[in-house]
Design a protein around this nucleic acid. Sequence first.
RNA 1: GCGGGCGUGGCGGAACUGGUAGACGCGCUGGACUCAAAAUCCAGUUCUGGUGACAGAGUGUCGGUUCGACUCCGACCGCCCGCACCA
Length: 866
Amino acid sequence: MASERYNAPVREKHWQQVWDERGTFRTQDQNRRRPKRYQLEMFPYPSGRVHMGHVRNYTLGDVMARYMRAKGFNVLHPMGWDAFGLPAENAAMERKIHPRKWTYENIDTMRAQLKAMGVSIDWTREFATCDPAYYVHQQRLFLDFLKKKLAYRKTAKVNWDPVEHTVLANEQVIDGRGWRSDAPVEQRDLTQWFFKITAFADELLQALDGFAGKWPDFVCTQQRNWIGRSSGASMQFALEGAKLPKKLQTLEIFTTRHDTIFGASFMAISPEHPLSTHLAKRHRELSAFIEDCRRMGTSEEALARAEKRGLDTGLVAINPFKPDAKLPVFVANFIVMDYGTGAIFGCPGHDQRDLEFARKYGRPVVPVVLPPGADPTTFKIGEEAYVGDGTMINSEFLDGLTVEAAKEAIARRLEERGIGAGKVNYRLRDWLISRQRYWGCPIPVIHCATDGVVPVPDADLPVKLPDDATFDRPGNPLDHHPTWKHVACPKCGKPARRETDTMDTFVDSAWYQFRYCAPNAATPTDKTALKYWAPVDQYIGGKEHAVLHLLYARFFTRGMKATKHVAIDEPFASVFTQGIVIHETYRSENGDWLTPAEVRIEGEGAARKAFSIATGRPVEIGPVEKMSKSRKNVVDPDDIIAHYGADTARLFIVSDSPPDRDIIWTEAGVAGAGRQVQRISRLIDQVVERGYAKTDPAPAFGPEASLLRRTAHKTLNNVSQNIEGLRYNVAVAQIYELTHALSAALEKAGDGLDWAIRETAELLVQMIGPMLPHLAEDCWERLGYNTLLSDQPWPHAEAALLVDDVITIAVQVNGKRRDELTVARTASKDEIEAAALGLEPVVRALAGRPVKKVIVVPQRIVNVVG
RNA sequence: GCGGGCGUGGCGGAACUGGUAGACGCGCUGGACUCAAAAUCCAGUUCUGGUGACAGAGUGUCGGUUCGACUCCGACCGCCCGCACCA
């Protein structure tokens, strides 16, 4: 009897319903004596529909969650919605639908889609960050941060996105453009809310050292660079040459090369430096120059190659170590205000940029560091500044010292004289969290003319978003609202103004991982729950969050520790970044993009051609790119699930490509995965059909049965290890090999073989469980069980079956493989050597030469050197 | 410019701490079943020479260490990513 085709879409719905009814994946919170495993994937933004990136992300996490569950861990695998954000407001403007309605409708759609994927989520813990029940706690956290001065307000130059009508954090500006809008950002002076991430700069940096092997290297490197620690010194220079207000009479600089102070030949300050601003008031040429720089300034990295230009202010600075050296002060276009103090001393001998500037403006170039082996009487700086190590020269009391010693000597004297000190500088800026938008978490403060910034009292929380906002004009709807912002000051009762800024949506996602541990707690977090569940054991998500979200969440955890909401420093014990899903692009003759569903492909390889299904006209096959709506190279997961089933989609996602690499979505690949699903289903049917005799105790095993059992248990062992190491593609390959072995065994007969076939089939079904959960559940039932496979413990590999009595090792002559040798595992070196030397191909390869040496590595290899 | 990662068949990719390179899948070729097709199954498939046994070459390039190198070291080439006048 031929087995029926496995109807995945129907069976999958059935099993999803069973899991749902039985609450199979509900986390047992009270079961805290079992070891826990917190598996988390980055929660989605409810943009409308689930895309392939989501399918990949949640499949990768689900394989791990299901595996760990079977391994006996108490698994927390929750899901929620990163639900605040601008697209909801855009939808409100374009389609006249309220952001709340739009968001919750999308959530309903996407929840159904995720359920159709068969993800083992505990849906009872679900929340959306736009639920007041969530953001009330975020407001509490904000107020606690405010108390601890981790949140503060300041006036600063900020990145203004002219399209989104809001400010952006530095991390959200990519190549001078807004991360969502792609519009060039402008600099504006505004008073905004910040989180003091710089307070933890050093901690955040140092903790990265402990992440080796648990976080991707590139993420650690990028965070290190973003924090950008550099160790140097601050130094004050007295200014002469014009009447200056007291505050501007000394110029403070930051340098990492204080050793080269005797080689200084000019000073340079940023066009945005307060001194530049002051001088420009009475100096028309200077104000024109500053204006010029400002216009050039903001855009593009092209300015990195732009010409170094400067304007002499006429002021001179006194070198504190060489008072007779008068250093002209330039305003220079290559000095940026937001690093160090926005001012430097230029030492052209040992800095390439300073050298170019000095040559252009006729400043002297004096070498003060002598390269090892160079002649001090003839050493000169040519086209290239010398930036290496060496011995100090032309530097009075520093002469003869190493660079390192000279730095120490200078730092010491600076401190003694009170005009500077050794100093560490960071590139990291505080996190600007104010957004002039409606659909975000309101910042819970009130501005009072008498009392200043007043926190909203806890009893008045949450500060809820008004439902009746209007979205018909640009700007902040909260600010436009007729009544919302007008409130009484909680302190003095006088009329006051509610803060109308909302928080950056990255705040919402900076602590959600803790909320899942106790999603209904009356406080932001629950100590008992956190003690058990935190930190997240494995976090899986996109590479694009290497610095953004992953850095913010790390900061927030430290902030929450300082405010006693958590007891740990780091939110994620290990992080895995998945590759993206990419697909071919298709373009019609008139340049329009077409979706894969609108295209018919004919031919193979070089003869492969595409045609529009609608018009029949040829279509150009373009490069393989990240799936995106604009390129239309998207495949709807629903279509795949409806046609092949979720298991096929899941299998395609985890087979072939390693999870951290990009994966090319192809119809052929999906069809191939679909065939594998059918193949396994058929194989299990064959096993059931053959009948079995799984007697207890086990029968005597003949050679066929023993071989099959060894293969099955070895595979189990390897698959387990490969799942744990997120090498799912290798695990899948090994499962395929086992199906071949099982298939071959069905053709044979032998002592105990029926028993072994039955055992192997059960192991196989259990092994596919994490990846193909519906099929596995279905096969488990066909094997005669009325329990759920999802409730079965992961099988144990029998240690005795993992080692072979007889093994095959390669035999080389001079490093070249000539033959192989089958020997007992326990064979001695001498036995192996004797057997190897007797092999005919070995004798032939030696061609009569005497054997000089024989290397025998038991159980591995023999190499005959002749 | 600085930093990180990666280069293996026609393709995706395997290869544990240096020990039989190319597992597994896709594709391709041939065959079986079929009136035919689909589906399925079997065999072959790194390259070169040879009917064949077999021989030689081979993991971006060049060199080194080693009995033995995809793996370790040095130099170079190419691709991808991040930061970018950072003082």
